Amino acid sequence: MTTVTSPLAGRAIGLTAVPDPVFSGAMVGPGTAIDPVREKTEAVAPVDGIVVSLHPHAFVVVDSDGHGVLTHLGIDTVQLNGEGFELLVAKGDTVTRGQSMVRWDPAAVEAAGKSPVSPVIALEATAESLSGLVDEGEIEAGQPLFGWS
């Protein structure tokens, strides 16, 4: 069982509340979403593993069980071309849960007309393989979001 923890502090809102049909319809995979606090912050690794994909607005960490976890910082933030995001790790790095991955400012994302809501997705998973999914309430970075068997 892999425990996936929150990469951000804020409010868990669930995928259905994400303002993007690809995420809200769980087309990328099951998971949840965080409406982050509106201050400069660092997104942290949700699991121990290897960074297999890294962009200013999104990253994937694969754990030792082969589970890939996507953290997508905001919606349509790829259109910001990295503006306001600072990478703190490199693709191929081994990271530990809670390690800082990307520094960003959700308030600046919102001011640029994009949603800072951040999906956390279990890639290539089924909804049935997740347990204890947190989809409401305040959450701190590092608190459990869901288990993955």
Rank of each mutant, 00 (worst) to 15 (best):
V95Q: 01
T96D: 11
H67F: 07
Q99W: 06
V102A: 08
V117L: 03
A107C: 08
M27F: 15
Q143S: 14
T94C: 08
P116M: 02
P119T: 08
A112E: 14
I75Y: 03
S131A: 15
P106Q: 02
V134P: 03
D135T: 12
T41A: 06
E39C: 06
D93Q: 06
P46S: 14
D65V: 04
T2V: 10
G31S: 14
L133E: 14
T5P: 00
G82W: 05
Q79I: 05
S100C: 15
A122G: 04
E39M: 14
H57I: 15
A9T: 15
G147T: 04
P7G: 10
G142I: 08
E110C: 08
E124M: 05
T126Q: 07
E140D: 15
V51E: 03
G14F: 10
A43K: 08
D76Y: 13
K91R: 15
V69S: 05
V102Q: 10
E39L: 11
T77G: 12
S53W: 10
G92L: 01
G68M: 00
P116W: 01
E140I: 12
A58N: 08
A90H: 13
V117W: 01
S53T: 09
G10C: 03
S129T: 11
A43H: 07
P21W: 09
V4R: 00
T5W: 01
G98Y: 07
E124Y: 00
P46C: 11
V52A: 07
A111Y: 11
T77N: 08
G132V: 04
G14K: 15
V120N: 00
H72V: 01
M1H: 05
A111V: 10
A107S: 07
G113T: 10
V120A: 02
G84D: 13
W148Y: 11
I13H: 04
G66I: 03
E136I: 03
I13S: 02
L145V: 02
K114G: 03
G98T: 14
G142W: 12
V95W: 01
G49Q: 09
L15A: 10
A12L: 13
E83A: 15
K91L: 12
V28F: 03
V89W: 03
G147K: 02
D65A: 12
V37L: 14
V69A: 05
S64F: 10
T41C: 11
I139L: 14
L15P: 06
T16R: 12
I121E: 01
E138I: 10
D20Q: 09
V37W: 05
L54K: 05
A125S: 10
P7L: 06
P144R: 13
D93W: 07
G147Q: 04
